[in-house]
Design a protein around this nucleic acid. Sequence first.
DNA 1: CTTTTTTGCACAATCGATGGTGCAATGACT
DNA 2: AGTCATTGCACCATCGATTGTGCAAAAAAG
Lengths: 352, 352
Amino acid sequence: MTDISKKKATIYDLSILSGASPSTVSAVLNGSWRKRRIKEATAQLIQNLANEHGYTANLQARGLRSSRSGLVGLLLPVHDNRYFSSMAQSFEAQVRSRGQCPLVVSACRDPEEERQVVETLISYSIDELFIAGATDPDGVHKVCEKAGLKHVNIDLPGTLAPSIISDNCEGARMLTQAIIERAQEDGPLSPDDLYLFGGRNDHASHERIRGFRDVKRALLGADPDVCIQPTGYSPAMTARAFETFYEGHGKLPRAFFVNSSINLEGLMRFLALHPHETFADIIVGCYDYDPFGSFLPFPVFMIRQDSEAMITKGFAILDADRGAPITHLVRPTLVPPRTALTGPLDALKDIE
Amino acid sequence: MTDISKKKATIYDLSILSGASPSTVSAVLNGSWRKRRIKEATAQLIQNLANEHGYTANLQARGLRSSRSGLVGLLLPVHDNRYFSSMAQSFEAQVRSRGQCPLVVSACRDPEEERQVVETLISYSIDELFIAGATDPDGVHKVCEKAGLKHVNIDLPGTLAPSIISDNCEGARMLTQAIIERAQEDGPLSPDDLYLFGGRNDHASHERIRGFRDVKRALLGADPDVCIQPTGYSPAMTARAFETFYEGHGKLPRAFFVNSSINLEGLMRFLALHPHETFADIIVGCYDYDPFGSFLPFPVFMIRQDSEAMITKGFAILDADRGAPITHLVRPTLVPPRTALTGPLDALKDIE
DNA sequence: CTTTTTTGCACAATCGATGGTGCAATGACT
DNA sequence: AGTCATTGCACCATCGATTGTGCAAAAAAG
């Protein structure tokens, strides 16, 4: 607190002040001083000086020397989405509780950008990397491997590294069953009354579609191909798909499964252009949870993926140092309409 | 690509391979080679070798030497919220377009944590810092100043550093006027029919409350103090406030202003516990935009803050190197109910 | 064919921390 | 008192880049 100096203190400054050598100062301040048999009194002296001058280690220097940085990366497709942002939130908490520093970046689902961004992270010598929802996990894997960087895939699996993903098929089954049952409360449901919108050519989408079709066939007897409408992960494209359907049928399907909250945003865009009546009685299932999405003016069943558990599992795998490309499934939960779940925010104390 | 080596190539490796000295290699690879009068041919040779071996600079080493890191920090209260996550998204895009690396972290609105997190960032020698929505901007300022770190406040102003904030008072006026007018369409509105929930003892809340009261008095003639219910920024506390009101009155206020989307989540929690009828005819204004919040089953007017413009302005101020604690206002926009705005995501190409 | 200028590059110090090694002083033990 | 073990610490190379400086060789000038 009492420091006059404008620049940050270094171990050399403290070395002069304390009369000890820089290596002694270093040992004291990084905790290895007992191992190095530094006298308790010396350690105390140095620690006091360090506090007094607000010393903090230069982590770039430490990282350079030790070829570790204390940084742990999380690569996301986008920030601006409750699923990924709550993943970022849990990630950050867990990384910090391990004494490391989180580095959350997004790569816009662009395979080339994914690789580039990871190259950048590697240049900072990050210690570990979580690859979430990558379009090309295996491409990223190769970049990591070349640099000897430990990593796991989250949300979308790769074939070359361990993956932790939502049990998409089972989640889709729960969700599909829920919307079918709900729709049937209002009368019989024919196979053409139940659609699926969104998703693209990735593992998650495939599994969700599989779960959807299984349950739909089991309960409704059929699933015409036209009822599956993969639109990519863009609100605009999804909105267009709804629009097209609406133009053809004069209404929306009685019930439908939306592949993600991003696609659900596409539904909002469609709704914005049409009067309320257009969708007064639809039943929606969305594979993702959003606290406001759950309260839309029609029943929205949602699937909440347990991103916190995925991150935890990811660290367990990294710690165990298993690089085998095994896929671990994490069970998601079905969230009925009009449900306000608590999130990572609730851990905060909110004084006043 | 043809590299056999397991470890990352360094300028020393390339120095041996090319026959040039490390300093020459360094100059070539960091672009300063013309200034250093390196022959074009030599530069080419080295650049080819670098590509061949997939060389990338060790940014920790560079940072150590140059005491800059290429990292730009953004300190958020939380990730898990559309306002802040879309801010993170624009921030990231802008930082990358400047050739730097974004470092987005959250500090849970805890002043002590804010300072600690910033200390950590400083240890990594970040070059610049955006302090968004900090509970104690001035406390963070002091930490930055001691380290000579350039910084700006976003969203919540400090008194010691330049601040860029939403024009909260004006936004609140627009929002208040909108909900009053809308409520009056259904009949006369008395001052006790219009409440404000959420916010706490910070600049933004004060300004919003001021705007709210101004307009309310102008249009409704009065604003009893009981109509202002600051609940902090926690969904749980906000929900309790609604519950309390409901217990006392058997209904919610006809119209109310909610201070942020986080507080609006509190409304969801309340709603989850009550039947639809309870809130069939409320009119809500929310100071924040959320794409799903806009489509709730009652009219929700929202204010969209222009976080992209704030970040842009922030860089302008940092680049101009003005440290004067001036507060810049950025005008937000009023978003009528059932509106789906496009966001940073829409810039993405979505192949397939 | 000198002298001066320009070109092209190598050398070496430096950033701040880490960790292996070595050595003096102290204490224990015979 | 002499030997040996232990304690407590200093020394120094090292991580990979940057940058000021110096010096040959080549080119231009005289």
